Amino acid sequence: MRSTKCQLMVASLCVALLGLSIATLSTVTCYGLHFSIISNAALESSSYRAIHHTAFYAGVFLSMTLILAALLSAAATVRESRCLTATAFFCFALAFCGMILALCWRYVHSTEVEDSMLDVYDLVYEEVRRNGSSSKRHELTLIHEVFQCCGKHSPLGDTAAVQHTMCHPGTAWAAGQDCLQEIHGFLKKHMGFVSTLLGITIGFTVYGMVLTSFLWFSIHFSNNLERKGKYTLRGR
């Protein structure tokens, strides 16, 4: 019993820190410079905007659930309350289901996020290429500055004019790298970090579910043992 309580307190602290990490990552994904630049350049009907906002709200929901589970499990450990322990177990289970769904979506739709970001850049780039005075010119310049790239390799050709006006000396384009490659590399690193964080959090969530269920049964049976053999005398 004492060992379980100590382990649950440590696990609660780790889960709370992981919840804060997911909240921070969700905020960076929503308001980070790389993602916000693409979101501002995307059309209202773009699939990237829907993915962008869904990822933020899902991350906030998971982080709040994890932090709540950590607080409830810590309180249940201190007070030895079956009600708090059961509620903490439910929060752990809810967070576990949410993260499993997130990981499944991550691997089933592994290219959807990348394709939506690249489509936004392609649309902005092609509009500036067709119309040099387009309002998208400023957005294209911002994308180039944030991702430290310029232009793209196009099988259709006719990109020299855009690269001459939009690429500064010493940019990544001079080394043979284009913005599509830079966006792909950035997103691959980001999604790899997301998958790693979710995997670690799932492990601690399962550990928390095991500990809270064991603590609940320990409290339940210890209460029954304390009541066993006790009698109450009634007056006539």
Rank of each mutant, 00 (worst) to 15 (best):
V206W: 07
M1C: 07
C149L: 07
L123V: 13
H164L: 15
Q177R: 10
L180V: 15
A88S: 07
T111C: 00
C97K: 03
I202Y: 03
T201L: 01
S134A: 06
S46V: 03
L142Y: 11
E139C: 09
A174Y: 15
G132N: 09
I219Q: 01
L17H: 05
A16H: 00
K5L: 12
C83W: 14
D122R: 15
A50P: 01
D119L: 13
L25S: 08
A69E: 02
Q163P: 00
H144Q: 05
C91E: 04
M117I: 11
L62F: 08
E80H: 07
C91M: 15
A70Q: 04
M1E: 14
H190A: 15
A58Q: 11
K189N: 14
L8A: 12
R137E: 09
W216C: 10
V10E: 04
S39A: 13
G192V: 01
A11V: 15
G157S: 05
C83A: 13
D115G: 13
E112Y: 06
R82L: 06
S73I: 04
A93D: 02
Y207R: 03
G19K: 09
A58D: 05
A175Q: 13
V124A: 12
L233A: 00
T54P: 00
L103F: 06
L25Q: 05
N223G: 04
C104P: 04
V10L: 15
G98F: 06
F96N: 06
S154L: 04
N223V: 00
T159R: 05
L43G: 09
G203P: 00
T196Y: 15
H153I: 14
V113L: 15
S222R: 00
A50K: 14
T111G: 09
S73P: 00
T4N: 12
A42Q: 00
R236I: 11
V60D: 01
F186L: 09
C83M: 08
F35Q: 05
H168D: 10
G151N: 06
R106C: 14
T85P: 03
S213R: 13
F214T: 15
E112F: 04
E126F: 14
T212S: 12
L20K: 01
C6K: 12
V206K: 00
S12T: 03
S21V: 10
F214R: 10
H184M: 09
T87P: 02
V60M: 15
S81Q: 03
S73K: 12
G192T: 07
C167M: 05
E126K: 10
F186G: 07
L18D: 14
Q163V: 14
E139I: 07
E226C: 11
G32K: 01
Q177G: 02
T212P: 08
Q7W: 12
M64C: 12
T65S: 14
R137Q: 10
